[in-house]
Design a protein around this nucleic acid. Structure first.
Lengths: 119, 119
DNA sequence: AACTACTACCATGCGACGCAAGATACCTTG
DNA sequence: CAAGGTATCTTGCGTCGCATGGTAGTAGTT
């Protein structure tokens, strides 16, 4: 099988850059979740589907930033799970991202819109 | 002076990843432009401001992909300019990006929206 | 017990891209 | 001539999403 190192180089995978971590924070907004669960949920959102090779390093970064905290809990149906929860700092980060995302998205939308303003 | 190599590591600079090249294509949609001009125009759009160290490698990639063509033209007020124009392939790429961007943006927006659906 | 499969955790290595910094050269103004 | 704006381009670097592969617990089957 042909293997392409360096990850999938699609347009959408580039779009996820920088956005994904805040999507995860948003996922944790309403309660703690574990990594596998986050991956499954993102898989349902169009354009946000990712894999464990992405999510674990990402969560490790978020822990280091202290935007999330984590706690181990046993599962009755499988191996133990590490649950992640938003910290106050994480909540702030999410809020400030949202404030940056909106004008950015609008700027891109505006540029992409085809305007027929010829004279 | 303290120098931080690796570029500015802000949230927005990560957001520009993968988007910028298509913004440039969009800028060229209505006629040819030169690099310096593109940088100035992007500087006006919130969140899309970039620098020459970004734009020249980017344009070089677009040339290699044959999404743009270029031609030198003398300026009456300064050094000669390299003008860039969209190729048919570039126009297609822009269109297909737009088709990917819209659901992506919507997915992020949906996640970021705070929904008060408790019970 | 051995096996398969699913769940769930994690680490390694890599390529792509946006950026800072700096180099070169043209033109105009003082 | 020096200074400043215009306009081109190169080099080196850090970040992050991904493919790949490894470990271990639980459950069902043979």
């Amino acid at each position: 099988m042909v293997v392409v190192p360096g990850g999938e180089r699609t347009v959408v995978s580039q779009l996820r850059r920088g956005v994904l971590q805040f999507c995860v924070l948003a996922q944790l907004r309403d309660g703690e979740k574990y990594a596998y669960e986050l991956v499954r949920e993102l898989g349902a959102a169009h354009g946000l589907a990712t894999s464990e090779g992405t999510i674990y390093p990402l969560l490790s970064r978020l822990r280091k930033l202290e935007w999330v905290s984590s706690s181990w809990q046993d599962s009755e149906t499988g191996p133990p799970r590490r649950y992640y929860a938003l910290t106050p700092a994480g909540r702030e980060a999410l809020q400030s991202f949202t404030a940056e995302w909106e004008p950015f998205r609008t700027a891109v939308d505006t540029l992409l819109e085809h305007k027929e303003n010829h004279r």
